[in-house]
Design a protein around this nucleic acid. Structure first.
Lengths: 237, 237
DNA sequence: CTGATATGACTTGTATGGTAGTCATACTAG
DNA sequence: CTAGTATGACTACCATACAAGTCATATCAG
């Protein structure tokens, strides 16, 4: 079934590139924003009818989604949105922590261009304004921007691609409950700490600051599991 | 053009799963083993004719390969094997180092099952035999086995998937020149050091041992660039 | 001889038909 | 009533046809 919110995603998409790429972007967002429930069955035909395209690009988008670990394609059975489990969240966080701490340390070691530092500081400023006015969605976008600018600014494009993939799993949990998680002010302060350490060229400090930041989700995870036990596949664990 | 070596890969493949998956495995191996030169143009039609399948599964395999960063699909132009550059190698190594050191440290922290430790020791034994008899291909397989058993044994499946992806980029360089790289005996000793540290539950030592191991490729990279300057896109750098 | 242009042989992208497998349900034999 | 089976409505997978863009080459005007 296609909700109006998903149709809106389709309309609002910039429509750059092929139909397959557009479908991938829209379906990925729909899954991350929990417009498709975990375990829900999708279908090539259903999606293709809904968006008035043929089955083929839908099928190719499904394959890409399965690569990203967001759906599970079972031959001759169906395609299902993958469930959320504590294990999948912890695993995604593990990889993200490993890569992001390395990026942060690398940035401190080699230094960042003034332009990049400025951009990061600017993002932090805007995050502060979002936090005070409670613009949740915008804050998430700026948060992603911060980590992307940092990774790409340090020249780690491959690393960012990896982060982007595992991040999708974590964002799904985030979208479950916005206010329950860590206060925005705390997250912004952690961002500032990271930039400070990098500007001081203190490698260990930069790594440590990122480690603290990446550990936040673990703090709120247990309450999330308890509150959304129907969503998590492994309520115990 | 399809060399006999590639046809052999197709024949020898276990043929498990769909045609698309089989094509992906074969083409991936062909690229990693330099059966397709960097920059070489592939074509959906060419491949589909050669393997007597339709264009569709070939196309889907191409999409997956482009996801893995092994080919570049340019709409209405063609599909090309991506080139090898120092930057791409350093980036892949950067990510792999970050994830593998985290895996090693995690294994030391939580400990590994006796069965896993035994399996790792057994792999090391077999690697010693391969090193002395100079079975290069088999050694590479056992090397990959070692890292896979370690990652999966520590429960880090997502991490292994990431390692597998970036590893493909590094393996291409390895296949360029086997004897030039680090002596096998040294690599095996590093494997043993890693297992020792994990068994001693020494987290820092395990991380350090893996770091040393992952840094080996950087040592041989400059000579590789010099010797295969025609292969590398950025001879200077 | 030079440069613009038309042509045709490519390429990947999309649409659609048919195949084979899965699964729930209804039905039938015992 | 129960166990086994046939049926039909799904599914993803593969093959094929067509559409649309790219690019080298040949052709022709100046």
């Amino acid at each position: 079934m296609l909700t109006p919110a998903i149709a809106e995603l389709w309309e609002q998409d910039a429509a750059g590139g092929s139909v397959r790429q557009r479908l991938y972007r829209v379906l990925r967002l729909a899954i991350i924003r929990m417009q498709f429930a975990p375990g829900q069955a999708l279908s090539e035909k259903e999606i293709s009818d809904a968006f008035s395209v043929s089955r083929q690009p839908v099928r190719e988008a499904f394959i890409r989604l399965s690569e990203a670990g967001l759906v599970d394609v079972r031959p001759q059975r169906g395609t299902y949105v993958v469930g959320i489990s504590q294990k999948s969240v912890r695993e995604a966080r593990f990889v993200r922590e490993a890569v992001e701490t390395a990026v942060s340390a690398s940035a401190a070691r080699q230094g960042l261009a003034d332009k990049v530092i400025y951009e990061l500081r600017d993002l932090i400023e805007r995050q502060i304004r979002c936090a005070s006015s409670g613009q949740y969605d915008q804050f998430f976008i700026l948060d992603e921007d911060f980590h992307r600018v940092l990774a790409l600014g340090a020249g780690h494009e491959t690393a960012w691609r990896v982060i982007e993939e595992v991040k999708a799993q974590l964002d799904r949990v985030r979208y479950l409950s916005v206010p329950d998680t860590t206060p925005f002010e705390k997250l912004v302060q952690q961002h500032a700490d990271i930039v400070d350490a990098i500007e001081q060229r203190d490698e260990d400090k930069a790594r440590q600051a990122m480690l603290v930041h990446q550990s936040e989700i673990l703090i709120s995870l247990p309450q999330m599991v308890q509150r959304f036990s129907s969503i998590f596949e492994d309520t115990n664990g």
